[in-house]
C-alpha cells in the first residue's frame, strides 16, 4: 500500500503503476523503438495505399469501386485513419525531439568532418531528418489535395458522385507543377525508406548475422518499389486517362 501511495505522488501514471512505461517512453532506446515500430507500421500502410492506387492504371471503374468499398466501411476507416494519424504524429514528434536532443548532444561541430564508413562520401543517413521533413510536407499537401479537398484551384467533384475518387485524383495531378511535386515526394519517400526500413529492424533489436544482410537489401528494394510505384502513377496515369 505504501508503495502505491508513494507512486501516486509521481502523477497519474504512477498511480496506475505505469511510471515504468513513462520511463520507457522517455528513454533513448524506448523512443527509437517507438520510432522504428511506427515507421514499420507506416510502411505497412504504404503497401496497402500503393496497392490501391495502382488500380488507377486499370481505369476509373475499378478504382472508384475500390474507393467506395473502402469508404463504405466508415467505422473501420475512421479507426484506421485515427491509427494512422497517431502513428504518424508519434513518428514525427519523436523525429523532431530526438533530432533536437541529438543536436544538443553533439553541441560542437568539427571544422572538418569525414566519414570512415568505406565508400560513404557524405553521411547519407543525415538525410533522414531532411527527407522525413520533405515527406511530411508532401503528406500535408497530399491530405489537403485529396483527403480534405481544400486546394482552392481544383474543381472537386462532390463525394456523392461515383466518379469523384478517380476524377479528383486526376485533377490533383492535372498541372505540371503538381506532377513534379508528387513525383519528387515519391522519390524522397523512397530514399527515406531505403535507410529507414532496415534501420527500424536494428532499432527493434532485430539483428542477426543470418538475416540482417537480407533485411538491408530488402530495405533498399522496398524503397525503390515504393518510389517507383507512386512515381509511375504520377508519370503515366494522367496521360493514360486524359
Amino acid at each position: 500500500m505504501t508503495d502505491s501511495t508513494a507512486q501516486c505522488k509521481t502523477g497519474l501514471l504512477g498511480c496506475l503503476g505505469l511510471s515504468w512505461f513513462f520511463r520507457l517512453l522517455s528513454s533513448s532506446i524506448g523512443q527509437k523503438f517507438v520510432m522504428g515500430l511506427t515507421g514499420l507500421l507506416l510502411c505497412g500502410f504504404l503497401v496497402a495505399h500503393l496497392a490501391g492506387n495502382l488500380l488507377l492504371f486499370a481505369g476509373a471503374e475499378p478504382f472508384n469501386h475500390y474507393a467506395h468499398a473502402l469508404h463504405s466501411q466508415w467505422e473501420l476507416l475512421a479507426l484506421a485513419e485515427f491509427g494512422l494519424v497517431v502513428l504518424f504524429l508519434a513518428h514525427v514528434y519523436l523525429a523532431v525531439t530526438t533530432t533536437i536532443g541529438n543536436y544538443r548532444a553533439r553541441r560542437d561541430f568539427y571544422v572538418l568532418k569525414q566519414s570512415k564508413v568505406p565508400g560513404r562520401i557524405i553521411g547519407a543517413n543525415s538525410w533522414m531528418f531532411a527527407s522525413g521533413s520533405v515527406v511530411l510536407g508532401f503528406v500535408i499537401l497530399h491530405l489537403i489535395d485529396l483527403r480534405l479537398g481544400l486546394r482552392s484551384s481544383l474543381h472537386y467533384l462532390p463525394e456523392e458522385n461515383f466518379e469523384a475518387p478517380f476524377r479528383n485524383t486526376l485533377a490533383a495531378l492535372s498541372d505540371p507543377i503538381s506532377r513534379v511535386v508528387y513525383f519528387l515526394g515519391a522519390i524522397i519517400l523512397g530514399v527515406h525508406l531505403s535507410h529507414g526500413f532496415a534501420s527500424a529492424f536494428q532499432s527493434l533489436g532485430l539483428n542477426h548475422p543470418k538475416y540482417t544482410p537480407l533485411i538491408k537489401i530488402i530495405g533498399k528494394i522496398f524503397g525503390v518499389i515504393i518510389a517507383v510505384g507512386f512515381a509511375s502513377i504520377v508519370v503515366f496515369v494522367p496521360g493514360m486517362w486524359r
Binding site: 533513448s28 527509437k32 536532443g101 541529438n102 570512415k116 533522414m128 534501420s199 536494428q202
Partner: peptide, 9 residues
C-alpha cells in the same frame, strides 16, 4: 549523450 540513428559511423 545523443540517441542512435543507426548510421554506423
Amino acid at each position: 549523450f545523443g540517441n542512435c540513428t543507426n548510421t554506423g559511423e
